[in-house]
Amino acid sequence: MNVFAEAFAWLFDPANWEGPDGIGARLAFHVVFSLAVVAGATIVALPIGVLIGHTGRGREPAVVVSGALRALPTLGLLTILALAMGLSVLAPYLALVVLAIPSVLAGAYAGVGGVSRTTVDAARAMGMTEGQIVLRVEAPLGLPTVIGGIRSAVLQVVATATLAAYIGGGGLGTYLFSGLKTGNYPMVLGVSMLIIALALVLDGAFALTQRLVVPEGVRVRRGTARLRSRPSRPRAAMG
């Protein structure tokens, strides 16, 4: 465990946190950059996903396209864009947006499309406009899954942003690549643990949000359902 002691010593040395190349600045950049990527992906994918979920059309192509995007090796996409666009923050930004889109898209169409069609039918029969159905019925009921998609995208992006340092993307990954080159394993290990902690904290925060946005009426049902003994567990809703 000696390496871990050294890693923690490096990580908690205040001197390493200061300055424009310090842990503080790079951590902040990593977080802000990741959130900016997810925001970009959400702006693109959320409306499309909601539309697919609401109309039920275009789901198959969306599954195929997002599956193919996901099968794309991230490092390959990063390096191709870096060669095409030069070493700037733009190449990793675009690459990461592309990689984040499938999760947001799938969360949106699964969340909105997963709302019981009977409920949607009833809302329409009562005289809700399509917009009202989306905003007042599908959005609140599908929100936990939609946020689940964004949560998945955040994890993906925090991880890939680390890799993006390889093409000059900045952030915490910068330490990893310079440490690998110089053989500074305590630094590499310390920053790795910091990134893991960051990912888990963000994941936990989103998990909590997901729970909080479950509408009360739906939560109540889950509660009572748990009290009854259920011989066959209904398949967990996706997301």
Binding site: T118, A122, A125, V137, P140, L141, P215, G217, R221
Partner: peptide, 14 residues
């Protein structure tokens, strides 16, 4: 007025 099976109630509203 429209009434359907299972009421078609909105689960998230009182």
């Amino acid at each position: 007025g429209y009434v359907m099976q299972n009421g078609g109630l909105l689960p998230h509203r009182r």
